[in-house]
Design a protein around this nucleic acid. Structure first.
Length: 886
RNA sequence: GCGGCUGUAGCUCAGAGGGAGAGCACCACCUUGACACGGUGGGGGCCACAGGUUCGAUUCCUGUCAGCCGCACCA
């Protein structure tokens, strides 16, 4: 127990007083670690690793909270539960940040420092900032097992990365080759296809005349990138294009440079687009590259890795891409080659990190062959071994995997897993190895050097579900907790991460790394915009926690959306959650303050429960069932909302009010009984709420006289443990209806709450009379009544305000306050309402098809409703007749 | 072009084949011995539109319109 136990509870819940100590209490007692009981089923999750030097943002907070709710729920259900946390080295992002800091603070570049010293600086940076994010994860209340924390560049995971690389290489699934890749000139590295964002931008289509070498004439090509013309090696036309049939095989003189290039035919060309003549630049366009391969064309490069023109561009050498384009267009115009310019919008690839226009660049890179790896994953989706929540994401996932191209995994960075390939200066052979290569295994030369590049960060992330558990070693954790039970992450990294974990998992463990993928959406601002640094509309979760508490943030995030959908985040919603938590707190205070000090768990005699007790216990059992079902289906939002409604409306607004009758009365036995039920309901609610709002529930639970060392380890409630009494539920609804009717009348007539009044209830039958007799004290308390008359045959006062409830008529003879005009209006409104209901029901029941085909219980329910409405309508009409004659 | 999501109260969103819901906002009243981060009462919606399936559709299907997203792109 924490030191705060059994201090009086403050009037308003103050999260700051509780959260830090509570987290230490949990973590210190090892509650986040699996119990290790092998007789129990295992439940495991790995945390999507945040960037080690990053800061927690709301997206993380949401993702982590969902996981924590699931983990706490499973832990309470008795699973041997483990949640493995960790961080990611985030190659480009981290390197860029350290480079920026070095530049700003010391005015040096990474090249000034050199590779090893620079990498050391990044490690130092990681040591400095690496704890920040994990402490932020703690502040959220994440119950992950920190004793198993991993980092993508720690020793074990690096071993896993090498192992995977070597094995894939040996199987021919990793290869090195000259390909057109996406090059970010600013980040100065290759990118994979999914790190490129295609956005529509306005541009120009330039029509340029390429003259024939011999004789007059030529062709006009259309291009958006005239600056690449120095690397043109051909012009292609469609083989069936009659317009240019005669040109095929002729030679053209490249404008400005005069180099000769052939005209050739290739079906890739779309005769409809532009002029139907396509310049072929294999080094600067992936499609052109393929055309070039088909026709055995040279590959010339006129733009280098720095985004500037090469010596091939002659006088344009050294210019950047934009400047070169302007100058080339101008020169073409002056020399009469530019036929016309058309304004177009086209999709241009941008670096997803820095938004620089990506340059398709021919270069030597490492690739993962995707088709053989994707196939078994597709099979796993098809046969249900890998499932998605919501299901619709399976389709997106499958479509992507079916069309995926080979994955470029080499990055021209220094921070990351260096590619385990060594080149021999002697014989030129490549050696890929698990251990550092000292001498070339092919020729024995000591002149070997390792590949300069590192691997895509996602390459190591892809191994996360098993590398964190010790793979490639055959560890106990791996055997027990792999495959993971579920993966929770945002749909935005379905391809980046989920797909890659899936194929790596299948390839290296023979099993999908998790059976279920639960996907959530994105956090947006109050206007529905994505949160971004450039918009400045981001919300810092730590500030939210400081202001409202981690529980309020968690409850907001978990109840704010339905599965797979985005959610908007704004202050009022957090306030609503904070208010709810305060409501729970005060309900607990109420129970606590009404409990005698230092007593054990009170007990009750099921035979003497009040109708209110039986009602709340029945409803509680229903709530346990519903909440459990929703959580099992990973529909956390709905589970949270059910708890919110039940806690506030039924438990606080009604049940607690009902209990005041006995608690403030003289009957000690009844008091004890009420306390027992109150404690039971509160205890159960705290257990159900704990996964959502762990801090406040644990804190409250400490004060309750229930056995157990901590709520986090308490068993999940069992719905069958409670009294079930559907009749009590039905009856309490009638009582509520009557109480609302009284309140309604009082409000309509502006009767001050302090003024007590009399009430008559004319019941339709003895059963209803008995019910109202039994709940008379409730009526008196809630209606502030000074006299109650209940009976079947009683006469209702004429000078009164009335209401019709299920099975009875209610009258409040308010003497001088009675306004028969208002009464008439009320009754007429009620009559119209009931008439509409009666007609609706009767129309249904008159339909022979409905009676014949609808399920019997539905027909029966309609009949019952019809009877109820007709009875009420009759009473209302009778009342209106009397009013007319008075 | 292919695929997907969304359209329900003023706002933000749940919901579900059979009587339209919540929070916030709004109006009126209330210092009732858990809570004003509260209580009570109230107003407010052809559930985007048009067809279809069904005894019955706001819910399922098709189409239209509107907003959004992903994938693929012809230079």
């Amino acid at each position: 127990m924490t030191e705060t136990t059994h201090e009086p509870l403050s009037k308003v819940y103050n999260p700051a007083d509780v959260e830090l100590n509570m987290y230490r209490f949990w973590e210190g007692h090892g509650y986040f670690q699996p119990v290790g009981d092998v007789s129990r089923s295992a439940f495991s999750i790995v945390m999507p690793p945040p960037n080690v030097t990053g800061q927690l943002h709301l997206g993380h907070a949401w993702d982590l909270t969902l996981q924590d709710v699931i983990v706490r729920f499973r832990r309470m259900q008795g699973y041997d539960t483990v949640w493995v946390p960790g961080t990611d080295h985030a190659g480009i992002a981290t390197q860029a940040r350290v480079e920026k800091a070095l530049q700003e603070e010391e005015g040096v570049s990474r090249h000034d420092l050199g590779r090893d010293p620079f990498v050391q600086r990044v490690w130092a940076w990681k040591e400095q900032y690496g704890n920040r994010i994990t402490n932020q994860v703690r502040r959220l209340g994440a119950s992950c097992d920190w004793s198993r924390e991993r980092f993508t560049m720690d020793e074990g995971l690096s071993t896993a990365v090498r192992e995977v690389f070597v094995r894939l290489y040996e199987r021919g699934l990793i290869y090195r080759g000259q390909r057109i890749i996406n090059w970010c000139p600013r980040c100065a590295t290759a990118l994979s296809d999914i790190e490129v964002e295609h956005t529509d931008v306005p541009g120009h289509l330039y029509y340029v005349r390429y003259p024939l070498v011999d004789g007059d004439g030529g062709v006009t090509i259309a291009t958006t990138r005239p600056e690449t013309m120095f690397a043109d090696v051909a012009v292609a036309v469609h083989p069936d294009d009659d317009r240019y049939a005669a040109m095929v095989g002729k030679r053209l003189a490249l404008p400005l440079v005069g180099r000769e290039i052939p005209v050739l035919a290739d079906a890739y060309v779309d005769p409809e687009y532009g002029t139907g003549c396509l310049k072929i630049t294999p080094a600067h366009d992936p499609n052109d590259f393929e055309v070039g391969q088909r026709h055995g064309l040279d590959v010339l490069q006129c733009i280098g890795a720095d985004g500037r023109l090469t010596e091939l561009a002659g006088p344009y050498q050294g210019l950047d891409r934009e400047e070169a384009r302007r100058r080339v267009v101008e020169e073409l115009r002056q020399q009469g080659y530019l036929v016309r310019v058309e304004e177009i919008t086209h999709a241009v690839g941008h670096c997803s990190r820095c938004d620089t226009v990506v340059e398709p660049l021919l270069s030597m890179q490492w690739f993962v062959r995707m088709q053989p790896l994707a196939a078994p994953v597709l099979a796993a989706v098809a046969d249900g071994r890998l499932q998605f929540v919501p299901e619709r994401f399976a389709k997106v996932f499958v479509h992507w995997l079916e069309n995926v191209r080979d994955w470029c995994i080499s990055r021209q960075l220094w921070w990351g897993h260096r590619i385990p390939a060594w080149y021999c200066d002697g014989c030129g052979q490549i050696s890929v190895a698990r251990e550092t290569v000292q001498a070339c295994p092919h020729c024995g030369s000591q002149q070997v050097h390792q590949d300069e590049d590192v691997l895509d960060t996602w390459f190591s992330s892809a191994l996360w579900p098993f590398s964190t558990l010790g793979w490639p070693a055959d560890t106990e954790d791996l055997r027990r907790y792999y495959p993971n039970s579920v993966l929770v992450t945002g749909y935005d990294i379905l391809f980046f991460w989920v797909a890659r974990m899936a194929f790596m998992g299948v390839e290296f463990t023979g099993e999908v790394p998790f059976h279920k993928v639960v996907l959530h959406g994105l956090i947006r601002d109050a206007q529905g915009r994505k949160m971004s640094k450039s918009l400045g509309n981001g919300v810092d979760p730590l500030e939210v926690i400081d202001q409202y508490g981690a529980d309020a943030l968690r409850f907001t995030l978990t109840t704010g959306s339905s599965p797979g959908n985005d959610q908007r985040f704004y202050d009022e919603r957090v306030q609503g959650s904070r208010n709810f938590i305060n409501k729970v707190w005060n309900a607990a205070r109420f129970v606590y303050l009404n409990l005698p000090p230092a007593e054990g768990m009170p007990e009750w005699d099921p035979a003497s429960l009040t109708i209110a007790d039986r009602w709340i216990l029945t409803r509680l059992a229903e709530v346990v069932t519903e909440v459990t079902d929703h959580l099992e289906r990973y529909d956390l939002g709905e589970a949270g909302r059910i708890l919110y409604d039940f806690t506030w409306d039924e438990f606080c607004d009604w049940y607690i009010e009902f209990t005041k009758l006995s608690l403030y009365g003289q009957d000690e036995a009844a008091k004890a009984q009420t306390r027992a039920v109150l404690v039971t309901v509160l205890d159960t609610l705290l257990r159900l709420l704990h996964p959502f709002i762990p801090f406040v529930t644990e804190r409250i639970w400490e004060t309750l006289p229930v056995s157990g060392e901590a709520l986090i380890r308490a068993p999940w409630p069992d719905a069958t443990a409670f009294v079930r009494d559907e009749e009590a539920v039905r009856q309490i609804r009638v009582v509520m209806e009557a109480i609302r009717a009284v309140r309604n009348i009082r409000a309509d007539l502006n009767v001050s709450p302090g003024k007590s009044v009399a009430m008559s209830i004319r019941c339709q039958d003895a059963g209803t009379e008995a019910l109202f007799q039994s709940v008379e004290p409730y009526l008196v308390r809630f209606g502030n009544l000074n006299r109650v008359e209940i009976g079947v045959g009683i006469e209702l006062p004429g000078q009164a305000m009335t209401a019709v409830v299920n099975g009875a008529e209610i009258a409040l003879p308010l003497a001088d306050l009675v306004d028969l005009a208002i009464e008439r209006e009320r009754m007429q409104r009620e009559r119209e309402r009931l008439l509409a209901e009666v007609q609706r029901v009767e129309r249904k029941l008159a339909n022979a098809q409905f009676v014949a085909k609808a399920p019997p219980h539905v027909v029966e329910a309609e009949r019952a409703k019809g009877a109820e409405y007709r009875a009420k309508l009759a009473a209302v009409e009778e009342r209106l007749r009397r009013l007319a004659s008075s």
